[in-house]
Simulated assay, not measured.
Amino acid sequence: MKITLCLLLAGSLMASCSGNNSKNKDTASVGSKDTLQATASDAPPVNMQYCFYHTDGTQGQDTTSVSMLINENKVTGKMSWLPKEKDARKGTLVGTLKENAIKAVWTYGQEGSTDTMTVDFQLRGNALAQKPYQYDAKTGRQFTNEKADYSVIYNMKNCAN
């Protein structure tokens, strides 16, 4: 009888402990940041270098990489679009940071000529989001769709790579 009572008591204690753990896990997950949602607390530390990459294409074969240095509200860096079978765009970024939003001008070279395009980014924890481009058939140029959401998501990577 005492053994059965001890086993029941031990079982109840274990169940209550594991119940507390799941409650702690739920609380921890609520407090963690969702990299797809931006908040004011996502404003980045200043004087830091950040590096991100994004892949797309039918088999993830096209890569865009962004390396940026944030110094107070100034943003400088490099951006490269490296498609598998097309001409690449490589160039520099110069812009400003306000809270977690970055507005920059990308000056890039492609097919022997230089061009510029405004790009809009948003820092989101360990991710970078960008407003997508649109194509203007009249001018033959791409431009940032200012009305769109930040839907192109870049993953953070180690800047040494």
Rank of each mutant, 00 (worst) to 15 (best):
S29V: 12
D26H: 05
E146N: 12
N47H: 15
C17Y: 09
R124D: 00
L128W: 02
K84C: 01
Q134I: 13
T4G: 04
T58N: 11
I70E: 00
Q61H: 04
A28H: 04
M14K: 10
T35K: 05
L7N: 05
V66W: 01
N20R: 14
Y150T: 11
A104W: 02
N73L: 04
D26I: 11
Q134V: 09
K25P: 01
M48I: 15
V75S: 05
L5D: 15
T107I: 03
N20M: 13
K147Q: 13
A104C: 10
Y108S: 04
T118G: 02
V105T: 15
S29C: 11
N161T: 10
T107M: 01
L9W: 01
F121Y: 03
A104S: 10
C51M: 03
G125A: 01
E111N: 14
L36A: 08
K138A: 14
T58P: 10
N71V: 11
L128P: 02
G57P: 06
L5N: 13
S29M: 10
T107H: 04
F52V: 07
Y50T: 15
N161I: 13
T118Q: 03
Q142G: 12
Q61V: 10
Y150H: 06
S80R: 11
A148M: 13
G125Q: 01
Q142H: 12
D42G: 02
T27Y: 04
L82D: 14
A160F: 01
Q61K: 05
E111P: 07
S113C: 01
M79P: 07
I3K: 10
W81V: 15
Y135S: 12
M156P: 00
T92R: 09
W81F: 15
T116S: 03
D42Y: 00
F143A: 12
L8W: 06
T64S: 08
V46H: 06
T107R: 11
V30R: 07
N100A: 08
Q59A: 12
N47Q: 15
G91S: 11
A101H: 10
Q122Y: 00
S65D: 10
F143C: 07
Q110P: 02
C6D: 07
I102C: 03
G60P: 02
S12W: 04
K131Q: 03
P45F: 04
E72D: 12
L9I: 09
K90E: 08
L123V: 13
S151A: 09
D62C: 08
M1D: 10
T139N: 04
Q130A: 12
A129N: 08
T114E: 00
L13W: 04
P132K: 01
K2D: 14
